[in-house]
Simulated scan of single mutants.
Amino acid sequence: MGLGSSIGRMEYVIRGQRVDEWREVKELRLAGLLDEAAPIAFLETYENALARPDAFWQERAERAAAGVEVKGFVAEDGDGRWVGSVTVLVEVPGGAVEFASQAKVPQGHLVGVYIRPEARGAGLGEKLFAAAMEWAFALEEPRLERVRLYVHERNGRAETLYRRCGFVRTGHTLPADVGGLEVEMAVERP
């Protein structure tokens, strides 16, 4: 069941991603990769993503819908069109590293944050993050101690959203592939 919210005059539903929604996963990801902030916000290019076979997108949707090591959340408008998404990766010490550094404690890692321009600025990002963090902190095994993310030091728009959602800089940074630094931000378990 999804969480409904009315922002402005538009009605949105925030919910977990479903396994059969690979076409929507692909379409929203490609839209995000065309965004002006994409070079500093995402680790892949539009061209690389576009060239991926359907099987890649099907597997990605299946993993994010399962909610075991990964859980995807989406925001839909009143017509069922996806207007935003965020994905939670579950990271444990000694586990696989998808991005950045090895987890020192069980934690969530938010990735794939994107909100279409027409849906920005009205609180939708906060609602997506609330759903993702509620799921992450409700896990019993592993019990996550924090949720982190990385933001490029020049992506002020994204960092502003993350701060509104309670994330603070941890002091840990990584060199970004596009120059500059990726800054770790985190929220500790409430």
Score class of each variant (00 low, 15 high):
Val70Thr: 12
Ser85Gln: 15
Glu98Phe: 10
Val105Leu: 13
Val92Thr: 14
Arg120Glu: 02
Gly84Val: 00
Thr87Asn: 13
Val70Tyr: 06
Gln102His: 11
Pro106Asp: 07
Lys104Gln: 13
Tyr114Glu: 10
Phe99Glu: 13
Val70Cys: 08
Arg120Trp: 06
Pro93Gln: 10
Val88Asp: 08
Gly78Thr: 06
Ala96Arg: 15
Val92Asp: 05
Ser101Phe: 10
Val92Met: 00
Val92Phe: 00
Val97Met: 10
Arg116Glu: 09
Val88Ser: 04
Ser85Ile: 06
Val113Gln: 14
Thr87Leu: 08
Pro93Thr: 08
Leu89Gln: 12
Gln102Asn: 11
Ala75Lys: 02
Gly80Asn: 09
Ala122Cys: 09
Ile115Ser: 02
Phe73Glu: 06
Val86Asp: 05
Gly80Gln: 09
Val97Gln: 13
Ala100Ser: 15
Gly95Leu: 08
Gly112Phe: 04
Gly94Gln: 08
Glu126Phe: 00
Ala119Phe: 03
Lys127Gly: 02
Gly123Ser: 02
Ser85His: 10
Pro117Lys: 15
Gly112Cys: 04
Gln102Asp: 14
Arg120Cys: 01
Leu89Trp: 09
Gly121Asp: 02
Ala119Asp: 01
Leu128Ser: 02
Leu124Trp: 01
Val70Asp: 12
Gly108Tyr: 03
His109Ala: 05
Leu124Glu: 00
Ala122Gly: 09
Ser101Ile: 11
Ala100Met: 08
Tyr114Pro: 09
Ala96Pro: 13
Val111Met: 10
Gly84Thr: 03
Gln107Ala: 10
Gln107Tyr: 03
Lys127Gln: 07
Val83Met: 10
Glu69Ala: 14
Tyr114Asn: 13
Gly123Glu: 02
Glu98His: 15
Ile115Phe: 02
Arg120Asn: 01
Leu89Cys: 00
Ala75Ser: 06
Val74Gln: 11
Gly95Val: 06
Leu89Gly: 00
Arg81Cys: 00
Lys127His: 04
Val86Ala: 12
Val105Ala: 12
Pro117Asp: 08
Leu124Ile: 01
Lys71Leu: 03
